[in-house]
């Protein structure tokens, strides 16, 4: 009799802890998704801003066709990327192109004084910052999730319910990790 109660109690305890760990894993996975959507929103915003920037600058920079082409190309590539790894790669290429473009702008004082250009530039700069901050938050969440999936005992449950480790959103190299230099 006593043996039966003990076994029953242990069984209930096991079920409770499995449910608890499972729920914690689901919560973490959702948090990762949420953090990713934050980045995605900002990446889309950047894609939307670039035609604006190009339009405003075109009138002033007639001899910089190449620069514009690089940016437009990088943008369409970034918009087509699907996986986290692909996105990271194409987005850092886009950042590089923007960087170069903003350096060229330095040679056009009229453009730098244009009110429209200044406001697009401010929006772009802010979007870059938001991407950086959202990336920071996303990577924190991914770290939590991956730790949970690898560590005992939650790894048992994670494996049997097929929880997958998520990719970090890392930008290619240290130089491009920097937010593009925007001068005011």
């Amino acid at each position: 009799m006593i043996g039966l109660i003990v076994v029953l109690a242990l069984l209930i305890l096991a079920v409770i802890s499995v449910v608890g760990i499972y729920n914690a894993l689901v919560q973490l996975r959702n948090q990762v998704k949420n953090a990713w959507s934050q980045i995605d929103v900002q990446l889309k915003r950047r894609h939307d801003l670039i035609p604006n920037l190009v339009e405003t600058a075109k009138g002033y920079m007639k001899h910089e066709r190449e620069t514009f082409e690089t940016i437009t190309q990088a943008r369409s590539q970034a918009m087509g990327a699907q996986s986290v790894g692909d996105k990271a790669k194409s987005e850092s290429a886009l950042s590089g192109a923007l960087n170069k473009f903003l350096l060229t702008v330095e040679n056009y004082p009229d453009l730098k004084a244009n009110q429209n250009f200044l406001s697009v530039q401010e929006e772009l700069k802010s979007t870059e910052n938001k991407i950086a901050f959202a990336r920071q938050a996303y990577n924190d969440q991914v770290l939590f999730l991956n730790n949970k999936i690898q560590m005992f005992p939650s790894n048992l449950i994670a494996n049997s319910f097929n929880f997958k480790q998520e990719e970090f959103f890392e930008l290619e190299d240290e130089a491009q990790r920097e937010v593009p230099e925007v001068k005011f």
């Binding site: 900002q42 401010e122 910052n129 938001k130 901050f133 938050a137």
Partner: peptide, 10 residues
């Protein structure tokens, strides 16, 4: 406004 939003995200 942008800066406040940035800090909200961070």
């Amino acid at each position: 406004f942008n800066i406040v939003e940035e800090m909200k995200i961070a």
